[in-house]
Amino acid sequence: MPPAHIELTALRKVYPTRGEDVVALDGIDLAVPRAAIHGIVGRSGAGKSTLIRCLTVLERPTSGSVAVDGEVLSDLPEARLRSARRRIGMVFQHVNLLDSRTVAANVAYPLEVAGVPRARRAARVAELLDLVGLGGRGDSYPGQLSGGQKQRVGIARALATEPAVLLCDEPTSALDSATTRQILALIRDLRDRLGITVLIITHEMAVVREICDSVTLLEHGRVVESGPVGDVVAHYGSRLARELIPVPDLPLGDQRSLVEVAYTTDDVATRDVLSAVAGLGAQVEIAAGTIETLAGRRVGRLQLDLPAGEVDAALVRLHAAGVHAEVTR
């Protein structure tokens, strides 16, 4: 495995509050390799934003360490941190552009901060706006752009100082689904062309399915599940697998049970699964099903609706056919 480009070790963040202390992050270990796109998912309050704030050290970790590109950021003094942050680009849900500046001046902002001479700034800004597909819009104000265009400016700004790492906190949550697609395609394209490492926080599984190479599920400040998307979906019983390849919940008749079948085509062909199911008899119905290709792996999930009395026999035959099967109700 290549050396990690973003590395969190035993990261803890406790917010002291008036009552009880809030443990927002409770011992996070996470390693993201160079040029990977890694997703962080979790319910509201799981600690996703805190994680990203610790990564930029806007929030000092209570304990543990944060390293980006081999440099430990978590114990740098504030002045060194300011220059270290230039190697991290960040994209926000609400974009956070400066309304008083033109698009070009917004993209130039991090260059000003980094002390890039004015003459070189203009050329770099033009190049960045071309990169995100907004060439020629430099003189507009953010207020004149659509949500998707604003986020493109946000991405151009994040990339201005040629960061090694791009952090995205819910970058598409304020966008419609077509615009979300475009922004995600842009992020993937930038990763391919620039070789940057991307960490993307989201509550939308569609984002993970669309662009992530690997994913981590966070809950109550802990890592619950984590791994490459292809591996995670093959852990059929895992929460991430169920959320990434969902099948609908179904109403169930009297004396009937629900058996969930899951497989990848690495192990068994769909047609063989279907004939195994057909062999279970006329009382067994396929009530719902999905077959999807994620991270180059084709995964199928079926819900079988069958008489409660036939469950045991069915499980034996399904297991013998080489598929995962379990009773869900």
């Binding site: 806007l58 230039r86 960040m90 926000f92 902002y109 991090p110 901060v113």
Partner: peptide, 8 residues
């Protein structure tokens, strides 16, 4: 926050 992340 954005300005801080950009090292201002």
């Amino acid at each position: 926050e954005a300005a801080r992340v950009m090292g201002s």
